[in-house]
Computed example of a mutant assay.
Amino acid sequence: MNYYVGIDLGGTNTKIGLVDEAGNIIFTTIVKTDSMEGFEKTVERLSKILLEQVKGSNINFEADVKGVGIGVPGPVVNERIVKFWANFPWSKEADLAGEFEKHLNKQVKVDNDVNVITLGEMWKGAAQGYKNVLGLAIGTGIGGGIIVDGKLVSGKNGGGGEVGHIKVEKNGKLCGCGQDGCWEAYASATGLIREAQSRLAVNKTNKLYERVKGREIEAKDIFDVAKEGDEFALKLVDYEAEYIALGMGNLLNVLDPEIIVVGGGVALAGDILFNAINEKLKQYSLPSCLENLKIVQAQLGNDAGILGAAYLGMMK
């Protein structure tokens, strides 16, 4: 049996796992990333943890582990070089693959974390059996993964799939990237909460205000109260569905995927959001792009990054 390592490198925590060629997870472990200790030291420590875990699983790393894949928050060039880091104090243009290869003596492949998650969903999750997949992670921001004919579209500078920064309003709301009018400034959980706060400032006669009085609002609060029939919250869900459909329709007209897999916290809203998105997409997408299109929730949860990274390591 051949085995593949999957690493999901996060700003706070890193998940490390070993997967066999059939997609069965042998082990997973979560450790603190501690990126402040520096690029080389962090990679060395994570490599040691990986080797110890594999040894503890009675698998011969040298003989039986055939590849290593890593998902990172940031754009990646040629499955090796991280152009810049989100939430890491590390230098730009870092050869992450090369640094891990020094310690592991195996081929290492690196890609953006949402790209990797989308690969995982194609291999073992909600998009099994499909080769043209759009993955969306709608949470604090909006990330994307684009798979065409079974291959990731990463682009010349690793920016392929940065769908959260398509523009949905001219001179619109300020986005965390520094530009105005980005999709994620409206349709992310952050954007939805920002809109809710604005409306709550002038309307306090609703269930949502009662629910969150004295604490910070979360996107889940909006969806929960909407499911109870609160008109104020239902209008916020309509706002969210409108902007998700607008951005998604633009992407459909460019990519024409077979399936869209939606993950992240906003996807947990379920039918109350997905039904509205499906209805509103008719305004924004060419009819041919909606034929036989499936829009589904991501299935793999916390294992998506590890499975996707392992599959990246397996790909020729």
Rank of each mutant, 00 (worst) to 15 (best):
N13Y: 11
N13M: 15
L18Q: 06
V19L: 10
G23S: 00
I26E: 07
K32A: 15
M36F: 13
E37M: 04
F39Q: 02
F39W: 02
K41C: 00
R45K: 06
R45M: 04
L50N: 10
Q53K: 15
K55E: 15
K55D: 14
N60K: 14
E62K: 13
E62R: 13
K66R: 07
V68Q: 05
G69M: 05
G74K: 01
V76G: 00
N78W: 05
E79P: 08
R80C: 12
V82I: 08
V82H: 00
K83V: 14
N87R: 12
F88W: 12
F88H: 01
P89G: 14
S91F: 11
A94G: 12
E101L: 10
G120P: 00
K124N: 12
A126S: 11
Q128F: 08
N132A: 07
L136K: 10
I142Q: 06
I142K: 05
G143N: 04
L152V: 04
L152F: 07
S154A: 13
K156I: 08
E162Y: 01
E169H: 13
K170E: 09
C175F: 04
C177E: 05
C182R: 02
S188Y: 09
A189S: 02
L192P: 00
A196L: 07
Q197V: 06
V202T: 14
T205D: 15
E210M: 05
G214L: 06
D221W: 12
V225Y: 03
F232K: 00
F232Y: 07
A233C: 02
Y239I: 02
E242S: 12
M248H: 11
D256P: 11
E258S: 13
I260V: 15
I260T: 03
V261G: 04
V266W: 02
A267C: 11
L268S: 11
A269I: 11
A269R: 11
L273V: 08
Q283K: 15
P287I: 03
S288Y: 12
C289Q: 10
L290H: 14
L290M: 12
L293R: 11
A298M: 01
Q299R: 07
G301W: 02
G308R: 03
M315C: 13
